[in-house]
């Protein structure tokens, strides 16, 4: 155990994994409770187009992906707000379109030797010191925004209509959440991979949802499950020589299934039925 921690890449990956576990879980609580799972997946796939454009234009792929995700996320939000295109429809359109754009752009940049599999499926070897710093800074931004707007985000998540009636800017807070999802996707994609990042956002929160009826406890449990899945998943992927993102997500899924089996609600029902 201690020997693998001597590798710089492993230290970076584990720190990045812990940060990702926390951020994905915190944002995931809102995504799960607001029923935004599909837009989370849509934003994650949009980041691929951003990465590819970044490579083509010689911009840092993480920065390019962030800008691209924000444009797509808020664009979908604006279309849905004006009632012109239903949200799930525009997600369905942009989900595939941004992936297609990414694939097209990669075809144009054949000369580049970029580990695209690192972005698509996650790789512990892919985390550079610069990536780690970007993850830490973006993670700090996400946590500060959640901390500042904690009660307001809770209100729009629980009852958006009442929040609006009470005079809170429910719509703008929804856009803040879309921005937080974009940041979370981008800071996670190096370790978990674009294809699987939405699972790491949703699964720990979904597991925590099974275990408690208190909002703060749900967030704390989601963070615990997210950090365990990300760090243990990284170590497992190192030992088993498997893709890090897939290992992390499958471990999180295992935690989710265990939570469903051990859910107090379900156990209560089970014993009542006896």
């Amino acid at each position: 155990m201690s020997d693998i921690l001597q590798y710089g890449f492993m230290q970076r990956a584990l720190i990045a994994g812990a940060v990702i576990g926390v951020i994905c879980a915190v944002v995931g609580v809102y995504v799960v409770l607001r029923g935004m799972a599909f837009i989370g997946a849509g934003i994650a796939h949009a980041s691929f187009g951003g990465v590819a454009l970044g490579v083509l234009l010689g911009i840092n792929p993480v920065v390019a992906a962030l800008v691209f995700c924000l444009i797509i996320a808020w664009g979908i939000g604006i279309l849905a707000r004006k009632g012109e295109v239903r949200e799930d429809i525009s997600i369905g359109v942009f989900f595939a379109a941004t992936m297609a754009l990414g694939i097209l752009v990669i075809g144009l940049t054949k000369g580049y030797q970029v580990d695209l599999f690192g972005y698509l499926f996650g790789s512990i070897l892919a985390v550079t010191p610069q990536d780690l710093w970007i993850s830490l800074i973006l993670g700090a931004v996400v946590l500060s925004v959640v901390g500042l707007f904690f009660k307001d985000l809770l209100f729009i998540t629980f009852d958006s209509e009442m929040a609006e009636v009470a005079g809170l800017p429910a719509e703008r807070l929804h856009f803040v959440l879309l921005g937080l999802i974009s940041l979370t996707v981008v800071l996670s994609m190096k370790v978990v991979g674009i294809i699987l990042v939405s699972a790491l956002i949703i699964t720990p929160a979904a597991a925590a949802y099974q275990l408690t009826e208190d909002f703060r406890k749900m967030m704390a449990l989601a963070v615990l499950i997210g950090v365990l899945a990300a760090t243990l998943g990284l170590l497992l992927s190192y030992w088993l020589n498997t893709a890090s993102g897939a290992t992390i997500v499958l471990l999180a899924t295992f935690f989710f299934l265990a939570s469903v089996a051990l859910s107090p609600r379900r156990l209560r029902w089970f014993f009542k039925a006896r």
């Binding site: 409770l33 500042l148 707007f149 009660k151 307001d152 809770l154 209100f155 629980f158 009852d159 009442m162 929040a163 009636v165 009470a166 005079g167 809170l168 800017p169 949802y209 408690t212 009826e213 208190d214 909002f215 406890k217 749900m218």
Partner: peptide
């Protein structure tokens, strides 16, 4: 939704309290 009754009632004040 994982929330307690007292917190729901307190939400009635959130608009008056203001953002952040």
């Amino acid at each position: 939704f994982p929330i307690r009754a007292g917190e729901v009632v307190l939400m009635g004040r959130y608009g008056r309290i203001g953002l952040m």
